Amino acid sequence: MGGLRIAAGSFFANLFSMLLVVLVAQSIGLLVGATILHPRTAIAFCTVMMLCTMLVAGFYVSNMPVWIAWMKYTSFVWYGYNLLLKIEFSHRGYSCSDLRKAKPEVAQDTPWCSVAQGQLFEVDVDEAVTLEVCVLMAALLVLRWAVYQALKMKTTFRQRG
């Protein structure tokens, strides 16, 4: 219904990328749960952190000020979003003339028209997806290691006391 690619490879790539983003988000939740003792404080922290993460990811706000634009590189949502864009729109045959025929009100500088040049929301969709996958995998491993260390430190303090 959404007009996504109808191929097994694209389906499993989308599934893998969403699974990777969910596992990173779960790791953040586990780390917050392991380090912050009070549930209300943990909920407030997670709400603010996820709101900031989603806002700097780029699909709610497209023109970020320069002084805050660097924060998108700390957002796991940004890497997951770019990964999904690259999987779906890489090597697709869009042309601006076809888009103008379908939607005459579309101007030259809209994101739809820029898909033909390989760009979509400042993402080169024809690049390889290795950077996004590596960053998400590294975030997953680092966060899971941090959860392990936090739980190990908690149990060590309880055994001594």
Rank of each mutant, 00 (worst) to 15 (best):
G2T: 08
G3E: 06
R5K: 12
I6M: 13
I6Q: 12
I6D: 12
I6G: 10
G9Q: 07
S10H: 06
F12W: 10
A13M: 01
A13P: 03
L15T: 05
S17G: 01
V24I: 05
Q26T: 12
I28D: 00
I28R: 03
L30R: 14
V32D: 01
G33F: 07
T35P: 07
H38F: 10
V48W: 10
V48D: 08
M50W: 12
L55M: 08
G58R: 03
G58Y: 04
V61Y: 05
S62N: 11
N63C: 05
P65T: 11
V66C: 11
W67Q: 12
W67I: 09
W67A: 11
I68Q: 05
M71Q: 07
M71P: 03
Y73I: 07
S75W: 03
V77W: 06
V77Y: 06
W78A: 07
L83F: 07
L84I: 06
L85S: 10
K86W: 07
K86C: 05
I87R: 03
F89W: 05
H91W: 13
R92Y: 14
R92P: 11
S95N: 11
D98K: 07
K101D: 12
E105K: 11
V106H: 14
T110M: 07
C113D: 02
V115Y: 04
V115E: 05
V115N: 03
Q117A: 15
F121T: 08
V125I: 08
D126I: 04
V129A: 07
V129E: 04
E132T: 02
C134I: 04
L140N: 03
V142D: 02
L143N: 03
L143R: 03
V147G: 01
Y148W: 15
Q149T: 12
M153W: 15
Q159A: 14
